[in-house]
Design a binder for these strands. Structure first.
Lengths: 180, 180
DNA sequence: ACCTGAACACCGTTCAAGT
DNA sequence: ACCTGAACACCGTTCAAGT
């Protein structure tokens, strides 16, 4: 049976989840799919396209953004859900940043945060977009930092930092960022 | 005359400035220095070590952090200076993020921001550290985003986005982030 | 339509051997 | 002390040719 794009993306996402971005190479991906490297380029235009698709896969698991009023609490919840989706995936923040540079509209979390911009930000589209990007940057920074702590702790065979710490930190950051 | 580490770092920084991170390879760097690739490893332990040193070089140009009280204005000024140092350097944010993951104490901007944490953050060391990291994430996000806009504008041969826009954006973000 | 085989033009890093 | 030469083990991407 022929390979499909979604199978390629699924396997890529699995490699990322299990081994991180350093192991997510086109050649390794091809090997796991039992196919020659060149075959991937029938389903994917290049590696960036693949990483954007992987980002979409990571974000697809997120619940729909809250539809109510743009409260601080709603922002915090959205950020915590994003964090929960990304934290267990090694190098997830870097992958999302590639998508952000290459196809920002694929990063649905951005649109979600835009809806949640507090009143004080005003109606200006750019101001709201920048506010959303700031919220995302704060979450991605927390993800990178926490995964780095984890890397160091494991190298020293110390106990892992708890995900709850990253969660509390994101909550605090978004509370500060969202308050009117 | 023998090569020195600082010559290696200087040339690496120049390549980054002129051509970006994609062209900053050990082989290319060796070529520009008129030396074999292996020679670099006498002066630098690996590429990450090099990128940390390049980050230090980029940040060395920054003025000393303001010594006065931790006002919002001082935070904004610090952020604007950091932005001014990084904005003209392609992929500067990615390079700083590597240093941040690998040797955070080399990112002096982090210590600078820590001093500037507003009173409301409190005396807790971790809280202040996270606040500083948030400030840095906001600036780095603005750098990445602006350089990305620039890339797109140049690809479409549209006029470049003005650095002043990035500056205004960083000011707004840090005002929001720093207010007590 | 979808994939193979094979190549092209690269990478970072190591290390015996030279000076 | 510092560097060369040469290798090792990889990369992403392209493309004629096959089925």
């Amino acid at each position: 049976m022929a390979l499909t794009r979604s199978e390629v993306v699924r396997t890529a996402t699995r490699i990322l989840r299990e081994y991180g971005l350093g192991d997510l190479t086109m050649r390794r991906l091809a090997r796991e799919l039992g196919v020659q490297p060149g075959a991937l380029y029938w389903h994917v235009t290049d590696k960036q396209d693949l990483l954007v698709a992987v980002t979409e896969a990571l974000l697809a698991a997120l619940p729909a953004p809250p539809t109510g009023p743009a409260t601080t609490q709603a922002t915090v919840r959205t950020g915590e859900e994003l964090l929960a989706a990304l934290l267990p995936v090694p190098d997830a923040a870097d992958v999302v940043r590639v998508a952000l540079a290459w196809r920002p509209e694929a990063v649905t979390a951005l649109a979600a945060f835009e809806e949640l911009a507090p009143a004080q930000v005003g109606p200006d589209v750019m101001a709201r977009r920048h506010w959303a990007r700031g919220a995302l940057d704060l979450v991605l920074g927390a993800v990178s930092d926490h995964q780095e702590l984890l890397r160091v702790a494991q190298a020293r065979s110390e106990p892992d930092p708890l995900p709850g710490e990253a969660r509390a930190r994101v909550a605090a950051a978004l509370q500060r960022w969202a308050r009117d």
